[in-house]
Design a protein around this nucleic acid. Structure first.
Lengths: 350, 350
DNA sequence: TATTAGCAGTCCTCCAAGGAGAGTGCTAAC
DNA sequence: GTTAGCACTCTCCTTGGAGGACTGCTAATA
């Protein structure tokens, strides 16, 4: 493709992203100041249309990019921008508190993605079952219940009140014993071990109460190891879709999809190969509801996914750079907070 | 107002709630089988219109209720329904787990409100600063940080990781000391005390490290005592508003309002007197964004608020009964989990 | 006084037709 | 390969009229 045609395409995409309007050959000349006549532009447009990169709504309308046009734009023509000072500042501010519970950190990140991009932001939690246990701590709260706090290399991954009649001392002993024995193992291994302790009788303190404590521990892990999806900035997205004149029915379906975290989460997971930045434009998304939308996404530690969701007519430059920055930042925070890996001790001496 | 006129009004409201369509005098006769002629109905309608209870879109259209008509309906004509078996079941199921962290409980409740009503559900957290402290527990996580868990009569109200260099023993001592001394005081009193410990030097273990621990405790309380708003079922609401042919711009404003928890929360708070069930119809709401909506709400323990948000054309019978049931249920759970009140010990012997 | 039948009148919705305007495609010349 | 000029296409908006649904009013009736 020759240079002028690329320029024409870029002009059409830029103009469409900015205004949402088709661009006519006349206007293109006026606003982008090429040194040829409008007829020449029209010929170029015709060629671009033949290649499927642009289209028009009816025979005598100006041109708008097709999804294929956006794809070409994203792949070859888009320039990533630097973060502005206020953006940089918001980012710093937001991550000031280190070592928050993972849940808070991810929610914060989703908020940040939404706030900076002006679209909806989302964060899918990492596969916790692949992270390694640091400690399990029990705290007696009152006669019948105790709090269990499970810490992995990514921070607090579960805190939960469980009914138990064991004493603080007994719980401490269990906690110490478990932590020492299981530290460095992945959480899914820990869950299996907990399961084993439940079914396996024999050792001294394996009385029914202890067994039930393990049972509860196991089910606590069960629940929390489900991946969770944090979405923020729904309002931003609606605002943009409103400008697109997307129908309320489609908007509703998008909102529904975002509230069905399981379905959307699985989709996100399936879209990530390594943790490179990716863009899915309109109907490149296999989920029907996402057809009016584009997705900018990126992987981070342990199969986590984050990104922004906006209309197809999205400021890809901004969306990509912000996702990139925040993704790298989150990765860094999680890596920093990660302890030096320890030797996983043998659980079953053989 | 005579009986037939009430019947006519009820028919118009029922029909409008069910179909969203105006009701003509003909159709009213056919569907509700009154033993008079359509002209008589028309006369009644005229009277009702004079009283501002019904209106028509144009001179020859059927009648629809005005907001005042809905108000009359809600105040005098609506019949609360019982919960169905599946509804009852969902309610049981959802509250099975006792003594979850407060946050989980309230989120769960919002979900339940949304799920059962088919509208959006919301729960505004209680004024935690008015609840009484049960215990403060510190758990050392690693060299530089510890988890603090603050328990009030409503359950866990804060759990947070704070940086500290104190040892587990020191933290335990502080926790025990604080819990014993402050148990039974309200959280806002506790916060003030923490503040006092920060500024007040002198006593033996008031070394800088301990002071900073108090400082952190204070700020932890600060943050969490803000009231939080849980909203669920946004999709439900959109679905209904779609059927109403509400414009996307209005929908967007509603979504924005729901995401600005501070503003919406304050409004909810202002709408509650004692904890009776209340209904706010359309422009009875002073928030402009809520004009296309009706609010069914109810107070619960310590100035908490919960309810559902739907279109003005809402199934008030269902919405009211569900809000009533769930509100009572949440109240009961919170009261049950509350411990026998204790004497608040003197903090400053004078 | 309350109710009724009958009819005129109002206002909606739907559809078709036509003019103005924007922008392209094509042709022929450079 | 580029350009000027012109015919053509399609949208958008307005206008006008037919058909239909209901009401409001009037005058008669119990």
């Amino acid at each position: 493709m020759d240079d002028r045609k690329r320029l024409v395409l870029k002009a059409i995409v830029d103009h469409y992203i900015k205004t949402g309007q088709p661009l006519s050959s006349q206007t293109l000349l006026k606003e982008y100041g090429l040194d040829v006549s409008s007829a020449t532009i029209r010929n170029d447009m015709k060629a671009l249309e033949r290649e499927g990169l642009i289209t028009k709504e009816y025979s005598s309308a100006g041109r708008v990019p097709t999804e294929k046009g956006f794809r070409f734009f994203v792949d070859w023509l888009v320039e990533l921008s630097e973060l502005t000072r206020p953006e940089e500042h918001a980012l710093m501010e937001s991550y000031r508190l280190q070592r928050q519970p993972l849940e808070e950190l991810l929610k914060q990140t989703a908020l940040l993605l939404a706030g900076l991009s002006g679209y909806a932001g989302f964060v899918l939690s990492p596969r916790l079952e692949e992270t390694r246990l640091e400690s399990i701590t029990w705290v007696k709260l009152d006669e019948e219940s105790a709090l269990v706090v499970i810490l992995s290399e990514l921070g607090i991954v579960e805190h939960r009140i469980l009914p138990t009649s064991l004493s603080q001392e007994e719980l401490e002993e269990i906690g110490r014993w478990l932590s020492e024995r299981l530290r460095g193992r992945t959480l899914s291994e820990v869950r299996e071990e907990a399961q084993r302790y439940v079914t396996e009788a024999g050792e001294g303190w394996h009385d029914p109460r202890t067994q039930s404590a393990f049972q509860l521990l196991r089910s606590a892990l069960e629940r929390r190891l489900e991946r969770r999806l944090y979405t923020e900035g729904l309002f931003n997205l609606l605002q943009k879709l409103l400008e697109e004149e997307v129908g309320l029915a489609e908007v509703r379906d998008i909102v529904r999809l975002l509230s069905e975290s399981a379905r959307f989460g699985e989709y996100l997971e399936s879209q990530i190969e390594d943790s490179k930045l990716q863009v899915r434009i309109g109907s490149e998304n296999s989920l029907r509801e996402l057809r009016p939308c584009s997705l900018v996404l990126m992987g981070y530690g342990y199969s986590g996914v984050l990104g922004v969701l906006g209309p197809v007519r999205m400021d890809y430059s901004k969306a990509c750079s912000i996702t990139q920055y925040i993704g790298n930042r989150l990765e860094a925070i999680l890596t920093l907070s990660r302890r030096a890996p320890m030797e996983a001790p043998e659980v079953n001496p053989s």
